[in-house]
Design a protein around this nucleic acid. Structure first.
Lengths: 166, 166
DNA sequence: CAATCATATGTAATATTATAACATTCTCTT
DNA sequence: AAGAGAATGTTATAATATTACATATGATTG
């Protein structure tokens, strides 16, 4: 019973489970690391996980204001800083926006496939790419701190719909 | 006779030649394509090529104002839009800044190595990475419009200096 | 217990980055 | 000379992000 109204590479999945898992993992990681997933941070993470689209800081602010009247830009940006530090979300550089990270416990740096149609962001570990990348960087004598690999285009789901729009 | 005061992967090269080539290529490409590299656009490109560091739009604005009193943000952003469209510069998404592109005639999408110390940006075609990437994206059934591959860290030059600071 | 320290949050102001909308000019073509 | 298209001028404002300082909260320890 999947609606085709909101095309998405994720439209088939059980999103509640998806979110629950993400939040459980986040809570677990924070306990292990002895860092505080405070109510604000938890709420921001939850809001980010409402969809697989990247969400902007001020949209998060709008969403959180009804719940926390005191919320200001700094409130959001501080929570985002924390979540990024802990590898619980990605900052999508090419969108100035933020998306949940499923890879928390494992490697954080992944390839992001960003659909220009449905706006969902898909993470891919892309081990072969990462291996080639490591080699290239090594050859350049470069020492990596951070990687941002962002591909914009049309996801499989949207493409299928475009070709077959029923 | 290379100064070690401004460490850079490019510090050994003849930068004047580098710029001249870039501008010549740009002029040539624009003629071929029948698009106008107007004085404003040319000046912006020249300013961007003053170094291999990514430069911010408002820094460009500050640099161009003494020459063109009328310059406003839109002046700069329009020139930048044109230069990006023509593949003459890269927008560095993770810096909100702009850097000259040496690959104009060839493929435009390259890997960017961004040094956090000297701030120089090095382009690399990285064909193996690109090949692996194409394969990965193909597997995902994704159709690429645009790639941004940005690696932050310390370049070889700066690393050498750090280890051997004479 | 009081003192202090570190962490997190509240709050206001402001800095930085980018776009929208509409007017004007310039250049080419007819 | 008229008209079309491209480029630029100009003003205003939107969107994104940070700084600085005040306050609170909770743990640690003298």
């Amino acid at each position: 019973m999947t609606s085709s109204l909101t095309p998405s590479p994720f439209s088939e999945h059980d999103h509640k489970k998806c979110v629950r898992e993400a939040l459980d993992t986040a809570e677990h990681i924070c306990v292990i690391r002895g860092v505080q997933l405070t109510p604000i941070r938890h709420k921001v993470l939850e809001l980010i996980w409402e969809s697989h689209k990247a969400i902007k800081a001020y949209d998060l602010l709008d969403r959180i204001k009804p719940l926390m009247d005191a919320a200001k830009p700094a409130t959001i940006y501080r929570a985002l800083d924390f979540l990024i530090e802990q590898g619980l979300i990605h900052r999508v550089e090419s969108l100035n926006a933020f998306v949940g990270c499923r890879c928390s416990a494992h490697q954080h740096e992944q390839l992001l496939l960003i659909c220009n149609r449905c706006h969902d962001v898909e993470e891919r570990p892309a081990t072969k790419v990462m291996r080639a990348l490591a080699q290239e960087i090594e050859q350049a004598g470069f020492i990596v701190h951070r990687k941002a690999i962002e591909i914009h285009g049309i996801c499989a789901k949207c493409e299928a719909q475009a070709g077959n729009p029923n």
